[in-house]
């Protein structure tokens, strides 16, 4: 009798778990795959404008990509290298200039609302001269690319081997808002490593190992 109960309970357990799993795989997605993740950021920073239109080099802001494991998210002081001067888009500034000339009045300071947010977040007072002030705070960005804790990815090794940023991060120069382009799953990494060992990177022979301990330790 008791054996029947066990078999019955086990059967129910297995069916239930299969049902649950079937539900999960409806979207055909590995757990924790964040591909396409595009969170709203506290400041509407545009990679399209900076990297695409203005053609600022990625490593101007992400300073450590070729020297450290982390590419680094730029500190407020790096933003302020330019934005001490640049407080609004060129169009808005010119419009104000033209209006001031037409109305024969002194030119008013124009400031884009997003940059105003940046200045406030960095602990600066937008109503005063920015050149006189020190950055005292930092912006709490929402993280887009995140690997699990048991994966170690080193930007240096990839950047110095000639892998372009876009290979993993996608067409960043066209993204108004940052989006996770690739799946960043292990299979995706391993396929690229296999391909690089076989075909090289930009014609250069590389040894992209697929040992577990290359990433997991």
């Amino acid at each position: 009798m008791s054996h029947r109960i066990i078999s019955l309970l086990l059967g129910i357990g297995i069916v239930m778990s299969l049902l649950l799993m079937a539900g999960r795989f409806g979207g055909a997605r590995v757990p924790a795959n964040q591909q396409g993740y595009e969170p709203v950021q506290p400041i509407a920073y545009s990679h399209r404008l900076h990297a695409g239109e203005l053609q600022i080099d990625c490593q101007y802001c992400h300073v450590a990509a070729s020297t450290s494991r982390h590419a680094g998210i730029p500190s407020g002081s790096i933003c302020m290298n330019c934005h001490k001067q640049v407080k609004a888009t060129f169009g808005v500034v010119r419009q104000e200039d033209e209006a001031a000339t037409a109305e024969k009045r002194p030119r008013r300071d124009v400031m884009s609302p997003e940059l105003r947010k940046l200045f406030t977040d960095l602990g600066l007072d937008p109503s005063k001269d920015l050149k006189e002030q020190q950055v005292t705070q930092t912006v709490a960005w929402t993280r887009v690319h995140r690997l699990p804790d048991y994966v170690y990815f080193d930007h240096r090794a990839h950047v110095n081997a000639g892998v372009s940023c876009q290979t993993c991060h996608g067409p960043v120069e066209t993204m108004e808002r940052m989006r996770q382009h690739a799946s960043l799953s292990m299979g995706w990494c391993v396929n690229c490593h296999r391909d690089a060992t076989k075909n090289g990177i930009n014609g250069k022979r590389v040894n992209a190992s697929i040992d577990c301990s290359v990433c997991h330790y």
Partner: peptide
């Protein structure tokens, strides 16, 4: 365990990037 999305996480850059101080090194 298969049901959750990773929680939203904040990324806080340093306030001032000191020259010669590379994050993660």
């Amino acid at each position: 365990t298969a049901c959750s999305r990773p929680p939203e996480e904040k990324a806080l850059p340093p306030v001032v990037q000191l020259e010669g101080d590379v994050p993660g090194k």
